[in-house]
Amino acid sequence: MLQAIWDNIKGLYSLLVGMSITGRYLLSPVETIHYPRQVVADEIMASFRGPIQLTKGKKDPAQTRCISCQMCVKACPGHCLSVTKGDTKAPAQWLYDFSYCCLCGACVETCPTGALEFSHKVYLVTLTREELILDLLADLQKRAAILPESQPVPTANLAPPTVPDVESIGEPK
C-alpha cells in the first residue's frame, strides 16, 4: 500500500518532468522553415539530387554534349527517357518524363560523354502530369541564356519568386 502510494508520487513527479520539458519547448523558438517566406539553405540543397538535366557544353554552354548514343535510354529502369537523333550526332529532341523517374542515376553514370547531371530543383511542382515531361534541350537553352554572374531569373513554373537561384548551386565546382 505504502509502496503503491510512493510509486504514484514518483509517477506524478515524472509527469511534472514531462510538462517542464514541453513547457520549455513551448517558450523556445520554432524549428521549422516557413516555406514560401523562407527556404532551406543553399548549402543543404547543393547535395540534393533532383530531376536530371543536360550539362552545359564546354565551348558553347547552349550546346549539349549528348551524342545520342541511347546508352541512358537503355539503362533507365523506368523507361522515362527518349532521345531522338538528329541529322548530326547531337540530339534533335531530348524528352524526360519525370513522373516515371526514380532518380537512381543510372543514366548519369552510364553517359559516356558526361552530358547528364542531377539538378537541384527541389520546388518542382506542376498541375498536370503532362507538364512533368520535360524538354531538356529547351531547359538547357534557358539555363545557358542566364549568365552566371547575372541576377537569378526565376522561372514561373519551377519556383516561387523568393527562392534563390537553384542553378547557381548546381554548378560543378
Binding site: 514518483k10 509517477g11 506524478l12 509527469l15 518532468v17 514531462g18
Partner: peptide, 12 residues
Amino acid sequence: KMYKGLVTDNVI
C-alpha cells in the same frame, strides 16, 4: 536525455 525525461520515465 530529453527523451528519457519526456517519455521513457513517464509513468503513463
